[in-house]
Design a binder for these strands. Structure first.
Lengths: 146, 146
DNA sequence: CTCAATAACGATACTCATTCTCATTCAGTA
DNA sequence: TACTGAATGAGAATGAGTATCGTTATTGAG
């Protein structure tokens, strides 16, 4: 997805939610687009510098989450990470490093994804609930920690 | 697994780690054995009452985690939940309620689990890392929130 | 273009889960 | 029973995240 398309889509979602696509919100969306996985507020603050103060960063991420532009991720101790929603990144899973705690996106080939979805569907049938989503986290060692 | 077996195994793991299996630690292990899914400190404190003060509860859970008796779970906003490790509960996955945030254990039939593991293995081959574990979280609505 | 009206912002105070500290108590051993 | 290190409990400290509130920026009406 191009940056222009990403911005157009993000703006459209924010508009549907009834808020503006401001400079600060654009900066956060673009920073997340650069990232290879979910990012903490601290990591984003590092990238963005003082142009987006921390208090605004928290509020911006809340707005972006509520309008469906980003989704939160809670895979590591005590920290909330954010990433662009699947309409922007495509469906993917995560590799959580058991050594350093970083989280990387993990592209999953279509065939494998279909098999995961089939399992989720069968589980849903078994247990009598309707699944709204799923996530497969794989714990291992990232390239830096090998 | 019977309570006696659970206690024996827990004691053995704590001994291997070089610490004692005290009254407070036993109480926490038994409380987690009663639970149907990962529990927060607040939830455990509610069940245990004042016999295990909160500061001890945190420390106890840390010791139990380091000795391999319990594992942490970070699936919901801002809260760490703990559950007995898989040697006690067997391998399982989680249903995270998108309504109320509770997390329930989800037993997965052997056949389905094998298919999940096959996918994880293939992903590992593709990406060139060795997986240490995996978790499949299904987001949906729990029975209370239907 | 100017002026409200309202959305967004930024600094700071605050909350609350979790961790740390330290004095006290307990369990195991001589 | 007395000694020694482990374990405990109460409360202080930390830090991520939230709420508040005065200021600034954007939008739309005239």
């Amino acid at each position: 997805m191009t940056t222009a398309t990403l911005e157009r889509e993000a703006q459209s979602r924010l508009a549907a939610y009834g808020v503006r696509f401001t400079r600060g919100r654009r900066a956060v969306v673009l920073a997340l687009a650069e990232a290879q996985g979910p990012r903490t507020v601290a990591e984003l603050a590092e990238v963005l510098g003082p142009s987006v103060p921390v208090s605004s960063l928290y509020r911006t991420l809340t707005v972006l989450e509520e309008s469906g532009v980003v989704v939160p991720h809670y895979g590591t101790r005590g920290l909330t990470r954010y990433e662009l929603a699947e309409w922007a990144t495509g469906h993917h899973h995560h590799l959580v490093c058991i050594e350093c705690g970083t989280v990387d996106d993990l592209e999953i080939p279509e065939g494998l994804e279909q098999r995961v979805e089939a399992v989720v569907e069968e589980l849903a049938d078994d247990q009598g609930f309707e699944p709204a989503g799923h996530s497969l986290e794989i714990e291992g060692r990232c390239r830096s920690c090998h």
